[in-house]
Design a protein around this nucleic acid. Structure first.
Length: 205
DNA sequence: CTACCGATGCGCT
DNA sequence: GCGCATCGGTAGC
């Protein structure tokens, strides 16, 4: 089980998001381990990305060097985690949308308030809550040997590609990547204001 | 399983 | 003030 090097993240967000499926999310100080089963790509040339309207204090980690966390607060209650990708200055990243819990389930259950185990990490807000993520985690370097990082154990699941969940803008860009065989993937919800989906949106990969 | 709806507070126009 | 990369509850199929 090897920590992912910065070079893994120094590629375009869609390639990184695809390759994050099957990797391990680790928070070693809490004893937490989970397998990522779903990730999405966001880049500053499309309007669903938090970097689309330029750099601010909030989204600065997206514009920094790759391999850093961008953790943002949304809907008044949820913290969601991204990894910055590409080169410094590019404003892009990958949202970690869902994972399969492997170790530290008791702490995850405590933080998540007794939901079914299948739902501990099934969604970006749920993942953030179970991992205890917050404002202080935004900007964390995932590649400097710290306690929050992503690792590779050689698992290579089949990956499906399709439109991103819940985005009002650029709703048909097929930048959601999920493990084909996992029961821990989040449910797909199209944004109410996004119009109708085109035919045949999902494909293997 | 899908569909709807309210909660909740921050960032930005 | 408006909208949001969401979630949990409830209702219905």
């Amino acid at each position: 089980m090897n920590r992912l090097p910065r070079s893994f993240f120094a590629r375009p967000a869609p390639a990184v998001a695809h390759d994050l499926v099957g990797k391990l999310l680790v928070k070693s100080d809490d004893g937490l381990l989970a397998r990522i089963v779903e990730a999405e790509a966001y880049t500053d040339d499309e309007p669903a990305c938090h970097a689309y309207r330029g750099q601010t204090a909030r989204n600065a980690p997206l514009f920094g060097p790759p391999g850093h966390a961008y953790v943002y607060f949304t809907y008044g209650m949820h913290w969601c985690m991204n990894t910055a990708t590409g080169a410094a200055g590019e404003g892009q990243g990958c949202l970690l949308r869902a994972a399969e819990p492997l170790e530290g389930l008791d702490l995850m259950r405590e933080r998540r308030g007794g939901v079914r185990d299948r739902d501990l990490l099934r969604g970006p807000g749920r993942l953030g809550q179970a991992f205890g993520l917050g404002r202080d985690d935004s900007g964390t370097d995932l590649c400097d040997g710290g306690t929050l990082y992503i690792a590779d154990d050689g698992t290579r699941p089949a990956v499906l590609t399709g439109p991103r969940v819940g985005v009002a803008l650029a709703p048909d860009l097929a930048w959601r990547f999920r493990a084909a065989e996992s029961g821990h993937v989040s449910p797909y919800k199209r944004h109410p204001r996004a119009g109708n989906a085109p035919a045949g949106t999902y494909s293997g990969g």
